[in-house]
Design a protein around this nucleic acid. Structure first.
Ligand SMILES: [Mn+2]
Ligand SMILES: [Mn+2]
Ligand SMILES: [Zn+2]
Ligand SMILES: [Zn+2]
Lengths: 136, 136
DNA sequence: TACTATTTGCAACCGAGTTGCACAAACTTT
DNA sequence: AAAGTTTGTGCAACTCGGTTGCAAATAGTA
């Protein structure tokens, strides 16, 4: 339907089913990351496992990335166009202890760390907890 | 019993019950962080909720800190003597994608981040995933 | 059209974490 | 010491996010 979304799906090698278009649309509208339970609330008629597998597919194809923000439910947000989720693509996340929203700080790359000898890096999850600009 | 452990408990204002002494002993022996399910395996005769509440107490009193390493179960490790779990006390953690062990990199403080305007910081969880020295 | 691969819906399940409640143990007050 | 109070423990039940097997539906292909 919407060519914007279909192009995004196509670019990431994901077949554009109705469900996927709808989920991608919702993900696109968000300014903060969203969880599977939240998605279930939005699509109260859609099936949990379908939504679950949609997110898994999106993540595998690097259309979205997941953030373990310590809230108990994984959060998901769109990747940048050229993102491959490699260490150099990663950014810092922020979770507000008041409104509970999880922000992608896309402009803040995760800092480089000098690991101890013989430790090799694959990825980094850096989540800052605090109070966001809306709640401050 | 063991005065080392009792002193540690006393310093953190925790009454030294038998259960707590045993759990602290196990925590002290570990070189990597440990989860509640793992603790249940070690104390196969102890009750889950008692262990759970023991960890909660330890964490409240800042005898231990918790690490959400993305494995699905929270990991726990002893705090340094003078640790108050304030931002300046925090260190980086490392989880091995082969042996699944979670390491405290006590010598690596979490990097300082310049947050966007009106965002204020409370704490940071920085977990690096990769391969540890034992598995490399 | 007939066949095959992919996606979806449903139900059941898993495991980590959490809670209410009764009993036990420790600590206080008389 | 006895009685009363606070704290800790054990058990059972439960919540909830996540996950899976399987059959029906849909899409893609020959
Ligand atoms: Mn992000
Ligand atoms: Mn640590
Ligand atoms: Zn907020
Ligand atoms: Zn390892």
């Amino acid at each position: 339907m919407d060519n914007e979304l279909d192009t995004k799906l196509h670019n990431r090698d994901i077949k554009p089913t109705a469900m996927r278009q709808l989920v991608l649309e919702v993900l696109t509208e968000q300014t903060t990351a969203i969880s599977l339970p939240e998605l279930e609330n939005i699509f109260h008629n859609a099936d949990k496992s379908t939504l679950y597998r949609t997110l898994k597919t999106f993540e595998e194809k690097k259309l979205i990335h997941s953030i373990d923000d310590g809230s108990g439910s994984m959060k998901y947000a769109l990747c940048q166009e050229k993102c491959d989720c490699l260490p150099q693509d990663l950014h810092v996340h922020f979770v507000c202890s008041i409104c509970q929203k999880t922000f992608c700080l896309n402009e803040i790359p995760v800092p480089t760390i000098n690991l101890p000898i013989d430790f090799t890096l694959e990825s980094v999850n850096m989540v800052i907890k605090g109070i966001c600009s809306n709640c401050n």
